[in-house]
Design a protein around this nucleic acid. Structure first.
Length: 259
DNA sequence: ATGTCTACTGATAGTAGA
């Protein structure tokens, strides 16, 4: 079973690129972030044609998340409780033998911006939601764009940027708090020492310079961790494909053994 | 470093957000 997460930076602009990736990588379950699309404009038929059903929590212009699945699935949550005013950033679904949640965590903008404090509160609400959701008695996945660099190893500039947005102690404590809830960073399970990135700024040739951050993550509970066969940051799909422009994020996927 | 991309607007270039 192949599960994946990808911030696509605009569904309308990325639909052709996304469909090429689906056809090529054949994931079973995908969490998508930054749809920037109203639900009424969601191109369900494009996904249906490839064998996927989409569960959607979108909004106009900003944010928006979805779960694509090739098996039957049912939404269990749309929106992070108490944080609805901060945008459509969470959707949970029961998909086969998994409880699958994908999130588009707030960016925070700058340390001085009001959104930075709101970001920290949003993570507190996420931890509370995770803690308080009844045990689904199956594997649990929490994946998405966390907009936090968990450690210096996840930042091209290493320790030089500690204290900047995405690398503050307060943000890293929020990410560590999710790990403390029994979640494992699946990429680090397989690749504990690799300096690899999932996001590169469009500006300044960051991708070709290797100036990236690892901010997109698949987290899994112990049951999921035990099934991990491989985890890949799909860097080839951060590249331009003919006339198709990539997202600024690469997809991340994991292959799980059967339960 | 601030070079790009997306989506919005009583749009058709400029702005905001990332």
């Amino acid at each position: 079973m192949r599960i994946a997460t990808w911030n696509i930076n605009g569904l309308k602009a990325r639909i052709d690129y996304l469909c090429e990736w689906l056809a090529d990588r054949q994931p079973d379950v995908v969490g998508l972030q930054e749809l920037k699309t109203e639900d009424s404009a969601f191109p369900h038929e494009r996904f249906n044609a490839l064998g996927y059903t989409a569960l959607v929590h979108g909004e106009k212009a900003w944010n928006g998340v979805a779960v694509l699945t090739r098996s039957s699935a049912e939404v269990s949550q749309r929106g992070l409780p108490g944080q609805e005013d901060f945008g459509a950033r969470l959707i949970s679904a029961r998909v086969g033998d998994l409880s699958f949640t994908t999130v588009y965590c707030p960016n925070g903008k700058t340390l001085e911006h009001p959104d930075y404090e709101r970001k920290l509160r949003w993570f507190d609400a996420l931890a509370a939601f995770w803690r308080e959701t009844p045990d689904p008695d199956c594997g649990r996945v929490l994946c998405g764009d966390f907009n936090i660099c968990p450690t210096d190893l996840d930042d091209w500039s290493g320790a030089a940027s500690v204290g900047e947005i995405f690398r503050t102690d307060a943000e890293r404590a929020r990410f560590a708090g999710l790990i403390d809830l029994g979640l494992h960073d699946l990429y680090r399970v397989r690749h504990p020492d690799v300096r690899a990135f999932s996001w590169w700024d469009y500006r300044g040739g960051s991708f070709h310079r290797g100036h990236g951050l690892r901010i997109d993550t698949l987290l899994g509970c112990e049951r999921v961790r035990a099934r991990v066969r491989d985890v890949v940051i799909d860097r080839d799909f951060r590249k331009k494909r003919g006339e198709l422009t990539p997202s600024d994020h690469a997809p991340v996927y994991a292959d799980l053994d059967p339960a």
